[in-house]
Simulated scan of single mutants.
Amino acid sequence: MNQPTLSIPKDIIEPIVQANITAAIAGAMGPSGEVMRAAIASILSTKVDSDGKPSNYSHSSHKTWIDWAIGNAIKDAARLAIEEQTESLKESIKQYIASELKKKNSPIVKQIADGMLGAVFDPSNLRYRLTVQAESN
């Protein structure tokens, strides 16, 4: 038995299928996108920890996600501006430090020396191990 076959090009079917999917999603979201608004409001007001991860605790330091995201964006922008400015001043800073290191009573040299001595003689760096072994005759 020979049955007739109808072939419809993909470029005609695809937009129709896409339109039906879009209409179904819009219908599922409710009138005027109420579901979408509620989802967005929920995400933006979710309490998060300092890493931006949702938190189950009502800790006073936890912020809403939107507050955390804005704060992070500001920190990143400030950090980038500082890095760019510091990079442009790198040679001047290097020359200043070099000239300070040549001075006999330079506060920078004193700070470096104090820092090095503090690190060398810091009690947490001065740990000794003593092993006692008894010998039997």
Rank of each mutant, 00 (worst) to 15 (best):
A19C: 07
D67I: 04
A69G: 05
D122H: 11
E87M: 14
P4K: 15
S124T: 10
E84D: 11
Y57P: 00
Q85V: 06
S136G: 08
I112M: 10
I108K: 04
R79E: 10
V109H: 04
V109K: 13
K94M: 09
I25K: 13
A98Y: 00
S7Y: 01
L80D: 11
A26T: 08
K103E: 04
Q3Y: 02
S60Q: 07
E87A: 15
S55F: 02
R129E: 04
S45E: 09
D11V: 12
I21E: 05
S50T: 11
Q18L: 13
D67L: 09
L80C: 04
G118V: 06
I74T: 09
A41H: 02
G33E: 08
G118L: 10
D51P: 00
I74E: 05
E87V: 09
K104E: 09
A41M: 07
S88I: 03
M116I: 15
E135I: 15
M1A: 11
P9S: 14
I112C: 02
D67Y: 00
I74N: 02
E91F: 03
S55M: 08
S92Y: 01
G115M: 02
H59T: 14
G27Q: 07
K110G: 08
E83M: 14
D76L: 15
K75M: 12
D51H: 08
V48Y: 02
Q95C: 06
Y96T: 15
A26I: 07
A26F: 01
A24H: 05
Q133I: 06
V120K: 06
N2A: 15
Q111H: 05
M1L: 10
N20I: 10
S99V: 05
Q111S: 12
A23W: 00
E34G: 13
S106D: 04
R129W: 00
I40M: 06
G118I: 06
